[in-house]
């Protein structure tokens, strides 16, 4: 997901912590000024931060096609979509700031590799059909996780999710619309569409993270309601939803062992290659170095702008004080 393998700090056993857990169990929302266990705060900062970074780095693979969009309308839609992602990053950084960490601190941790972003954005976008596949599959997978997070226990995070989900479902529809055009288009367009599905299928399944049925981190995060479903539940739901859509498009899911089971009401599918996933997380995905280099370049090249605007704001403030 946009937050993968988030390490959860353990809960303590103080009376405050027990009362806190009782509030969560009653379905109350935790707000920034409320008491919260240190572990809850730290885990949330990691999770929301990783989610925010994913939005910002996630601008890059789609941004890669803005200047090559095939029509004025497609260009406007794609630009608006990538702009929405910047907006999502902004809401999420604001939500994280309510926990006592600044946006600049989080940014520094992304840029020097201390914090992660979703593995999916380390894959390249090679044809226009990838703009369809990213919307259809990547945003589709993201929505699986983000819809339940609208009910997460931390108020600012839940409210950010409500806004984000509205936009994400629009993104997913426009991605599917691109895929429809491509799948029903010329031979070359159909080939691009199938190729995009071939490349993005398994990385999309990886977005949910490895099976977490035995993970202590997940159990704690679920008790705190900052993780709402297991990775396997969400992955299954995604496959069940997406396979019929691929069939509708006339495309083939690249899994020869994919099978529908009447008795379970679910598809059986091949797991992605988890060693590839771990490689990507360690920095060895096809685009990790390029993505981080692009973010670092934007940040470093922009330093004089941020400093200049701050200096001007200080001068204006000083002049105002002097005038009073």
């Amino acid at each position: 997901m946009y937050a993968q393998l988030v390490k959860s700090d353990a809960a303590d056993d103080s009376p405050e912590a027990r009362a806190f857990q009782a509030r969560i169990d009653r379905g109350e929302k935790i707000e920034p000024k409320d008491w919260m266990p240190d572990g809850y705060r730290k885990t949330l900062i990691r999770q929301i931060g990783q989610h925010a970074h994913s939005e910002i780095v996630g601008q890059l693979p789609e941004g890669n096609w803005i200047t090559r969009a095939p029509t004025l309308e497609r260009k406007a839609i794609l630009l608006a979509k990538v702009q929405d992602e910047a907006g999502h990053g902004l809401y999420l950084y604001c939500a994280a700031e309510t926990l006592g960490v600044s946006r600049d601190e989080l940014t520094e941790m992304l840029l020097d590799g201390r914090m992660k972003y979703s593995s999916i954005f380390n894959y390249p976008t090679l044809t226009w059909a990838d703009m369809g596949a990213v919307g259809w599959l990547v945003d589709g997978a993201a929505i699986m996780n983000q819809v339940p997070l609208q009910r997460t226990s931390y108020g600012p995070y839940a409210r950010a999710m409500v806004r984000i989900c509205k936009e994400e479902s629009f993104h997913q529809r426009q991605g599917f619309d691109i895929m429809m055009k491509m799948a029903n288009g010329t031979e070359a367009q159909r080939r691009m569409a199938q190729n995009a599905l071939d490349r993005f299928w398994y990385p999309s399944l990886m977005m949910f993270g490895p099976s977490d049925k035995d993970s202590v981190h997940s159990a704690q995060s679920m008790a705190w309601k900052i993780k709402m479903n297991t990775n396997d539940e969400l992955r299954q739901k995604f496959v069940d939803q997406t396979v019929p859509q691929a069939e509708y498009l006339g495309l083939t899911v690249p899994d020869p062992d994919l099978r529908w089971h009447d008795e379970t009401g679910h598809y059986e599918f091949t797991q992605p290659d988890w060693s590839e996933f771990m490689d990507v997380l360690r920095g060895n995905g096809p685009c990790n170095a390029d993505r981080l280099a692009a973010r670092n370049k934007a940040w470093d090249d922009g330093a004089w702008v941020r400093e200049g605007l701050m200096a001007h704001a200080d001068k204006k403030r000083a002049a105002k004080v002097a005038a009073e």
């Binding site: 910002i56 601008q59 890059l60 941004g63 803005i66 200047t67 004025l72 260009k75 406007a76 630009l79 608006a80 990538v82 702009q83 910047a86 907006g87 990053g89 902004l90 950084y93 946006r103 692009a294 370049k297 934007a298 940040w299 090249d301 922009g302 330093a303 702008v305 941020r306």
Partner: peptide, 26 residues
Amino acid sequence: LSEWCGHAPVLEEDIALANTALDLIG
């Protein structure tokens, strides 16, 4: 302006440049 998308000095400027680009494309 759309060439800046994802590369601006600060998030707010990234969004504002994209807004201007969107207006101009419209």
